[in-house]
Write a protein that binds this DNA or RNA. Structure first.
Length: 505
RNA sequence: GGUCCUGUGGCCGAGCGGCUAGGCAGAGCUCUGCAAAAGCUCCUACACCAGUUCAAAUCUGGUCGGGACCUCCA
């Protein structure tokens, strides 16, 4: 089998993944700022890295997955006024800052659950790690790479760049930075424009504030991730993930901070997912084109022609490679919805199929399968899925192969192909791979509502009545039952073997 | 302005030098009381121009689109 390779943003190379400690992986992913509701764009990294986590686990690694919650309110400059996002919103919504943080954290967790994302091993909050952040800042000052001005502390990027490759991750050069960084208000405290804040003195009206050696204030934009990743994963860990838009300045700054404190670039492999776009434009704050996840699930946003389920969204994200942009459209989502339904139903059929040999004496392992060619094809398609995942997590190709096997499964179920066309071993492998990939790795799940015993009982009764009607060739009655159920979103299907199955929209 | 990415069939999207990805939509057929589902078959594209090569969607140069980052951002 091939070995796992990932595109490392730090080196711009596809590299074989080798963890620092054999058998163990430390992974840090930048989590949400809980000053507002998550939108579709936010779904991408958490689903992408959920698959990374699931796949590493599938490969047998013990993974510690750390994803932070940013609840300390990053310093933000909107127009001319410097404000704290969380504090500002709290005033508007008449909520305590922590009340607001709790509300959006809960909502975020709910959305993650809808997407069937595995919970991280540790989900540290910025407010819970003020001490660690202060300690780290102190260390950077001691080393001479940060300076204090009026109760604020700034990282000395210029000095750092003289000794370390600042800009390596994001591919920019210091000289250019000097030229292109535009004028901003409140920059006068900094020695150089590209310096960034480690600690900001809190103005009197600022609600979120903590005591520090430099006076009351709050942590800077990037220090929380450095502090928390170091605390839970060590001074050097395996994977650091996040959206491409975080590459600069966020991750670049993280690297600088951690390099001074820990004498290491924090992570060996940096992975960045690409953006979700709307009409070709990035979905984001600046463009005012976000569709909130609650709106996606409910279909309430003006851009939406209908509601899209969490699995539909997950599936459509996985149909695109994580490093490509994914353009939002109703057409694409509808296609994903239908495609997923077909795949899932095929998978359900596969689970119910049983391998039986003609002469019961043969053990399944010994049967060879009557169609050698088909047997080989199925095996090839399955094996390729491992190679695709190992090639920088190409979930799109994995799905393509699942679809190529699907007609074989459906034909077996409809008895167009005998199950014994493939060997018992191959059949077992087929079931095992579908389960592993669909559920364990891609993290898809069934969404069929109403798995309620009573409803099923009622349906069985209706099917029974309809069967009698059909027996009498009373098609008016039989069609009435089927048509009216269809209007309720319940679809009856007359199967080839005389059974009647049903599915919910 | 600087740095980088990108342009694929009706739509979405893989692809990274030879071998028609896949999904959705559309057409035909099979099965069926009729549907639906499923199966089979068809629809063979790579912005444009020039080059490298036996061979290019894939490499190089240019032209024209689109986008990201440089500022909070997933």
């Amino acid at each position: 089998m091939s070995e796992l390779k990932v595109l490392n943003s730090y080196t711009r190379q596809k590299e074989v993944f080798t963890p620092i400690t054999p058998g163990h992986v430390g992974m840090y992913v930048c989590g949400p700022t809980v000053s507002g509701e998550s939108h579709l764009g936010h779904a991408r990294p958490y689903i992408t890295f959920d698959v990374v986590y699931r796949y590493l686990t599938h490969l047998g690694y013990k993974v510690r997955y750390v994803r932070n919650i940013t609840d300390a309110g990053h310093f933000e400059e909107e127009g001319r006024e410097a404000e704290d996002k969380i504090a500002k919103k709290a005033v508007l919504e008449k909520l305590e800052p922590m009340e607001l943080v709790q509300k959006y954290t809960n909502l975020f967790h709910w959305a993650m659950l809808q997407f069937n994302n595995v919970e991280p091993s540790i989900e540290p909050t910025a407010t819970g790690h003020i001490v660690e952040q202060i300690e780290m800042i102190k260390k950077i000052i001691e080393d001479g790479y940060a300076y204090e001005v009026n109760g604020s502390v700034y990282f000395d990027v210029k000095k750092y760049a003289e000794h370390y490759p600042y800009g390596k991750l994001s591919g920019r050069v210091m000289d250019e930075q000097l030229e292109t960084t535009r004028e901003l208000e409140g920059q006068d405290e900094k020695r150089n424009k590209q310096d960034f804040a480690l600690w900001k003195a809190a103005p009197p009206q600022h609600i979120m504030r903590w005591v520090s050696p430099w006076g009351e204030g709050f942590p800077g934009w990037h220090i929380e991730c450095s502090a928390m990743s170091t605390k839970y994963l060590g001074t050097e860990f395996d994977i650091h993930g996040g959206g491409m838009d975080l590459q600069f300045p966020h991750h670049e700054s993280e690297i600088a901070q951690s390099t001074i404190c820990n004498k290491h670039v924090p992570a060996r492999y940096w992975m960045h997912n690409n953006m979700i776009t709307v009409n070709g434009k990035k979905m984001g704050k600046s463009y005012n084109n976000q569709i909130k996840l609650t709106e996606m699930f409910a279909g309430t946003h003006p851009l939406l022609e209908q509601a899209y389920s969490p699995m539909t969204i997950r599936f459509s994200i996985l149909q695109t490679h994580y490093r490509s942009t994914l353009d939002f459209s109703n057409e694409a989502l509808k296609a994903a919805e239908k495609g997923l339904k077909r795949l899932w139903e095929g998978y359900e059929h596969l689970k119910k199929l049983e391998y039986r040999t003609q002469n019961t004496g043969d053990s399944i392992e010994e049967t060879t399968g009557s169609d050698k060619e088909l047997d080989e094809k199925v095996n090839r398609l399955l094996s390729e899925m491992d190679d695709f995942m190992n090639d920088d997590l190409n979930t799109a190709k994995v799905l393509a192969n699942l679809y190529e096997v699907l007609p074989v499964i459906n034909s077996m179920r409809d008895k167009l192909i005998a199950i014994t066309a493939i060997s018992g071993t191959t059949f077992a492998r087929l079931q095992q791979y579908f389960k592993a990939y669909i559920e364990d790795i891609l993290g898809l799940k069934g969404e069929t509502a109403n798995e309620d015993g009573k409803l099923n009982g009622v349906l069985e009764l209706l099917i029974d009545i309809r069967r009698d009607a059909r027996g009498r060739k009373d098609f008016a009655t039989s069609d009435k039952i089927r048509n009216q159920l269809q209007q309720l979103g319940i679809l009856l299907k007359d199967e080839k073997d005389g059974r009647v199955s049903y599915s919910f929209d």
